[in-house]
């Protein structure tokens, strides 16, 4: 397919999403849909946002390609990267039509997800326990504090040595960073719960075990989800580093490999893909959080309506 057709389809999709968003707003503000779209398109805010984006792309093209300034001239230009990405027959073997592109994406996503899930499964219960039991906190917190200052990426060499093969090593360092973020945010969440909820539950006859389920877990939920969002970002952060250092597939590997092979546009394609996937994964965590904390959503929305 002609890259321009794909480009047109993409733009149309973005416009459609934008228009749909405007429809929701139109309902909220009780104006007609067309009116709302016209309002948005002519609003200063929208024009400035568009200008910011356009200026960036134009500057990129100008400095890198048109004027070819020193330093900048070695970088790939925006148009070049876009066309490579959309080309059915890419110069460097990576585009939306090649299987390799998706292999890298799948590898990275699989690793990030595995590490994230493991970190959540271990970090949340551990954080809850630390917040719930003074004794457990006293024993475990000093250990966590001793190990935590070592940046996860410093574990890479050791992880490769201990664990069988590179694959578990990369997942391990990704897990490690996500784990600490999740665990500490959960602990913070438990500590943030107002004492009167514990007292109320005990007044009403709850045992210590029930407190964990009925107060500690739901009370810490907002912090847990903030933690999970940060943890997702942190997971991608160390995954990329891990893949650059010690992997055979994945977007981090792709970026570094393309650098070694002087396939510069692929670097930008890899970066952009990472950005999109990273953003999307945070969005997933956010929406799951919203689903689980319906009480909070309705509280915020409800107060908005009342006011």
């Amino acid at each position: 397919m002609n890259p321009f057709i794909v480009l047109g389809l993409l733009l149309a999709a973005i416009l459609a999403v934008g228009a749909w968003q405007q429809k929701k707003k139109a309902l909220l503000y009780e104006v007609s849909w067309g009116h709302q779209i016209r309002n948005t398109l002519t609003s200063k805010s929208f024009l400035l946002q568009l200008a910011g984006f356009v200026v960036f792309v134009v500057m990129w093209q100008l400095t890198v390609k048109t004027l070819s300034l020193p330093w900048f001239s070695r970088l790939p230009g925006p148009w070049e990267c876009l066309m490579e990405w959309l080309s059915p027959d890419p110069d460097y073997g990576i585009s939306i039509y090649t299987a390799d592109y998706y292999t890298h994406i799948v590898y990275s996503t699989y690793r990030a997800t595995t590490a994230f899930v493991l970190a959540t499964l271990l970090g949340v219960p551990l954080g809850l326990l630390m917040g719930w039991s003074r004794k457990f906190y006293d024993y475990s917190f000093p250990l966590v504090e001793v190990i935590r200052p070592i940046p996860p990426l410093a574990w890479v060499p050791l992880a490769i040595l201990i664990l069988p093969g590179d694959e578990p090593a990369v997942i391990f360092v990704t897990f490690l960073v996500a784990f600490f973020v999740t665990c500490l945010n959960t602990l913070l969440g438990v500590e943030s719960i107002d004492e009167s909820y514990f007292r109320a539950a005990r007044c009403l006859g709850a045992s210590k075990k029930r407190l964990l389920l009925d107060v500690v877990l739901p009370g810490a939920m907002p912090f847990i989800f903030t933690g999970l969002q940060i943890s997702m970002g942190a997971a991608w952060f160390s995954l990329v580093a891990g893949e650059m250092i010690a992997a055979q597939y994945g977007l981090g590997f792709l970026i570094w490999d393309s650098y070694s092979l002087i396939q510069y546009p692929v670097i930008v394609i890899g970066m952009a893909t990472l950005g999109v996937i990273g953003w999307a994964s945070s969005a997933v965590v956010r929406s799951v959080g919203r689903k689980l904390m319906a009480w909070r959503e309705r509280e915020l929305f409800g107060s908005g309506q009342a006011g």
Partner: peptide, 18 residues
Amino acid sequence: PGPDRVVVFQHGALFPWK
């Protein structure tokens, strides 16, 4: 604490998640 003498709190302590 026990259910024979229940407290109603200053800032309220209804569980917001229930």
